[in-house]
Design a protein around this nucleic acid. Sequence first.
DNA 1: ATGAATACGAAACGTACCGTAGCGTAAAAG
DNA 2: CTTTTACGCTACGGTACGTTTCGTATTCAT
Lengths: 209, 209
Amino acid sequence: MTTGRGRPRDAQIDAAVLQVTAEVLDQQGYRGVVIEDVARRAGVSKTAVYRRWPNRYRLTIAVLEDRLGRIGAPSTGCTLCDLHECLVLTTDAFCRLGAGTLAQLIAEGGDDPSAHQHLTEAVLDPPRQAVHRTLFEARERGDLRSEVDLPLVVDALSSLVFYRLLLGADPMSPEEIEAVVIALLRGIATDADALLREAAGHEEHQPQS
Amino acid sequence: MTTGRGRPRDAQIDAAVLQVTAEVLDQQGYRGVVIEDVARRAGVSKTAVYRRWPNRYRLTIAVLEDRLGRIGAPSTGCTLCDLHECLVLTTDAFCRLGAGTLAQLIAEGGDDPSAHQHLTEAVLDPPRQAVHRTLFEARERGDLRSEVDLPLVVDALSSLVFYRLLLGADPMSPEEIEAVVIALLRGIATDADALLREAAGHEEHQPQS
DNA sequence: ATGAATACGAAACGTACCGTAGCGTAAAAG
DNA sequence: CTTTTACGCTACGGTACGTTTCGTATTCAT
């Protein structure tokens, strides 16, 4: 490892395994990620897989890192629009991942604290931080009261998206997201009505609905 | 089953198994609920367990039904106090259950829709409905704007408790719950300031802090 | 060129836990 | 006293994990 001795790893194996894992994940969720099957479908030996990732959990996380690495955080200066956009993107990202898979990953991480941390860093934090950044900018701009507990508000918004996907009948719709953001903004903004007026001016979002 | 023919079931077995399962659940979470072990610790055969519950998931749910069946919903007429109390109770109930266990149960239910339904009815809905009832009474009383989407607000509050337990560094503190309730109330109350004043009068809660 | 180090595939293995089935015995109803 | 059901014991088949062994291939270092 330190010196470049010995036969080098075949990069195509990494690629093939990640690829197959991603497919399986989409089709059958985390349950479907069975190392032996993945290896066969990738035309690779089980040994080769375990040489790269210590277990199926970490293999899965590796796939998700690629996918959810960055949530593009918008920054138009319109607090309501930005927040809304941010949460819609988060919802989409999680939806694509799938409720069952997400639940299973969290459950798996429950035992091993380092596993939980990996999941958090790779999957959960990115969208959270996008929301945080958005709120931070809003506060810098003077849109929010200075005493607001930012992390708590971030939790309040993220959690909803999360919860609805995991346990609700269906995930959050853009309309519901908007309703919640507006309600919450009334509680934490210096001048909520001004923010609403500003957002009304930017209503070139979706002319439909 | 229909006629009372044959040897009757030993009620002590039911009790012993439920008891042991509850203990194991507290000590080692859902993972620890291994039928063979539970049976041995209860001094009972594996067969006897499977005769009563079809699988370990349902056995676990049966235990939780006893525990979380009812969350006592307060109804003092003070919207803020009631909500606060309600959420604190919910947090406590979930905390006792444990983050890992909760995650694993949700994950398990991900596949089987009927399993998911059982979990929802036995564990997730009771606290939700307590919050819902509280909000409903508040609206009846005229404390909330009439156009408020009640289920959505219920989700917003429940989700936070839930999310923080599952993924946060630590579960919600009473202070944080209060902060969120106040912020949200500003967004959905007809006269939030009046509610805050009323709550201030009821401050015999915890003289500490 | 030769040897150490590492990767690859194939196969078998050990472990854990699931849920089921057969069998002999015990306890109730008719 | 026969039928029905419960109970315990034991064994089984199944799935998936992650590990190990072994023979072969590939690369670097000397």
